[in-house]
């Protein structure tokens, strides 16, 4: 149960993020979740969108370097300890988090946690064994 995420290379200069969101808007692509990782010189924008291939192609056409990666989306109840329970499980299985970000779905009842682990297949089986709800890309877009 993997979700496709696109990642975009961002040079640290003004207007780049605005340019990306403009391209996505023009192509009627909806952003479900995003995070920006940054260093002094560059950043990486990670996006979960409703139309992955269209987003990738339009950004490439706009001159951006775009990559596609698989991530895991875990749905947890939006209450104290929701994230901790997932991380405890990962820790017990000696999985490392490369990065993560989160958003709360529209109903406000559940939070969706996006993870990139060092060992993705193992992460999926461990989380499923422990009864966590993993969402597909379609499910995220339907939220």
């Amino acid at each position: 149960m993997r979700v496709e995420q696109i990642a975009v290379f961002l040079e640290n200069k003004s207007g780049r993020l605005a340019e990306i969101t403009r391209i996505l808007a023009e192509n009627e692509i909806n952003i479900r979740a995003l995070s920006v990782a940054d260093t002094a010189d560059f950043g990486i924008l990670r996006l979960i969108v409703d139309k992955v291939d269209a987003a990738k192609e339009s950004l490439q056409a706009g001159g951006f370097t775009v990559g596609k990666t698989d991530v895991i989306a875990v749905e947890v109840p939006d209450r104290t300890g929701g994230l901790a329970s997932v991380l405890d499980t990962a820790n017990d299985a000696q999985l490392n988090v490369e990065y993560m970000y989160a958003f709360v779905n529209k109903s406000g009842e559940n939070a969706v946690l996006i993870f990139r682990f060092d060992r993705m297949d193992q992460a999926i089986s461990v989380l499923q064994e422990k009864g966590f709800v993993l969402l597909s890309g379609e499910e995220i877009c339907a939220l």
Binding site: A7, T65, G67
Partner: peptide, 15 residues
């Protein structure tokens, strides 16, 4: 220039 061959979604890899 960062081409798609060398691009990664992980900061650690690019650094």
């Amino acid at each position: 220039e960062v081409s798609e061959h060398i691009f990664s979604d992980e900061i650690r890899v690019l650094e």
